[in-house]
Design a protein around this nucleic acid. Structure first.
Lengths: 97, 97
DNA sequence: AAATTTAGTTTATAAAATAAACCACTTTAC
DNA sequence: GTAAAGTGGTTTATTTTATAAACTAAATTT
């Protein structure tokens, strides 16, 4: 009846990161920070988790002498996000909402 | 951009409880247990939280000499569930999913 | 060269989820 | 009638998670 929901995506911040990356495919740390309104610490922690899960890849480089962290979705991440959406629907479909 | 997601509903089990109640409006403990496949302990804990949040009311009565716990949605719970759905959409709408 | 800013990471604390143990009965079997 | 098993839960303890706060390292400004 109710599908299992991927715990990696059942988190507001991780879901927002993934959702934003689904649109832009690739984003800098600070773009994610602005878009999600998260604290840097929390964002850093959740990026690490998504990376460990293989949902995003993180490329560490430099821009204007400053460290730059670039995040992009992996095929696996895209798959997981889409599956999450499908699974979520089982919680709403039978309702009138 | 991304709406805040009600933490009370950002939980698989609590969302399943609410989703089921949105359909049946009222359910016995064991019906919820079967429907959600949750352990009794976890179900009991999450029912308490939804009750404390004012999303459901819990009526404790008896059926065939045995304790019976009945759960039903409050107007506030219905509102929260519907708002959650609306807010969730902000995480998916701009995508092709 | 001290203070401030940028771009993060790590650590410590609080909150949440979950499994396991427990409780208060009721029913069944002896 | 009493011991064992079953019903319908609750409570407690452990693990996991989220988050804020503190920290690091280098660059820039004053």
């Amino acid at each position: 009846m109710y599908k299992e929901l991927d715990p990696m995506l059942l988190s507001q911040l991780r879901l927002a990161i993934m959702s934003y990356l689904m649109v832009v495919r690739e984003a800098e740390f600070n773009a994610l920070r602005e878009e999600t309104a998260a604290s840097a610490g929390n964002l850093s922690a959740q990026i690490s988790k998504l990376q460990e899960a293989g949902y995003i890849v993180v490329e560490k480089t430099y821009k204007n002498n400053y460290p730059l962290t670039l995040c992009k979705l992996t095929p696996r991440g895209i798959e997981a996000f889409e599956a999450f959406y499908v699974d979520l629907k089982t919680y709403f479909n039978q309702d009138q909402v």
